[in-house]
Structure formats: C-alpha cells, structure tokens
C-alpha cells in the first residue's frame, strides 16, 4: 500500500515536472519591464560596465548584506561544532 502510494506520488510529480516546459517559453520571465530598466539605465546610474554586479551590489545591496551575514553565521556554526568535538588538544591557539 505504501509502495503503491509512493509510486503514484512519484509519477504525478514527474509528470508535473515534464509539463512545466510546455507552459513556459525558455528565456522569457514573467515580468521583463524591470530588466529593460536595468539594462537601459544601469550604466548611467551606477557607472559600472557590468550590469550584473551593479544589480548585486548597488540596486540590491541589502540582499548582498544578508548573504554575507549568512556566510558569517555559517562559519560561526561550524566553529562552534568542531571546537566542542576537538577536545583538549594542544593546538588551542586562541
């Protein structure tokens, strides 16, 4: 019973995944007005030739701040986890 249910769920999900490209055309996002604004005005406003970088660091700078803070939190988590596992060895350098 459980096995048949999982097979049915898998078939439904696979069919849905295969049906998505039939409805969406490749390379056409739903809203393209904002893209045209960035491409047209990005060079004059941010004075950078690379539009992708000016979007990442200028127009969406706050999101990049969140990304950096997430990396910082990940490093803190890894440090806490492996510090407790390391025990009392002689390379406690700080």
């Amino acid at each position: 019973m459980k096995r048949e249910l999982s097979v049915v769920i898998f078939v439904v999900l696979a069919a849905g995944l295969c049906a998505i490209p039939a409805f969406l055309t490749f390379g056409e996002p739903a809203e393209s007005g904002m893209d045209q604004y960035f491409i047209g005005n990005g060079q004059a406003q941010a004075a950078a030739n690379n539009i992708v970088t000016s979007v990442v660091f200028d127009y969406r700078g706050f999101d990049t701040l969140g990304e950096s803070v997430i990396l910082f939190a990940a490093v803190i988590g890894v440090g806490l986890m492996f510090r407790s596992m390391r025990g009392e060895e002689e390379h406690e350098d700080e």
Partner: peptide, 20 residues
C-alpha cells in the same frame, strides 16, 4: 577607476568569503 562603492564592496565581500 569607475563605479563608486561597488569595487570597495567587491573587495570587502571577496576578503570575507576568502576568510570564511
């Protein structure tokens, strides 16, 4: 020598990702 604070932020994020 263009782009305002974008190179400074690039350098900052690059140093941070390097160390992290």
């Amino acid at each position: 020598n263009t782009a305002g604070v974008i190179p400074i932020m690039n350098l900052a994020v690059g140093i941070e990702v390097w160390g992290g």
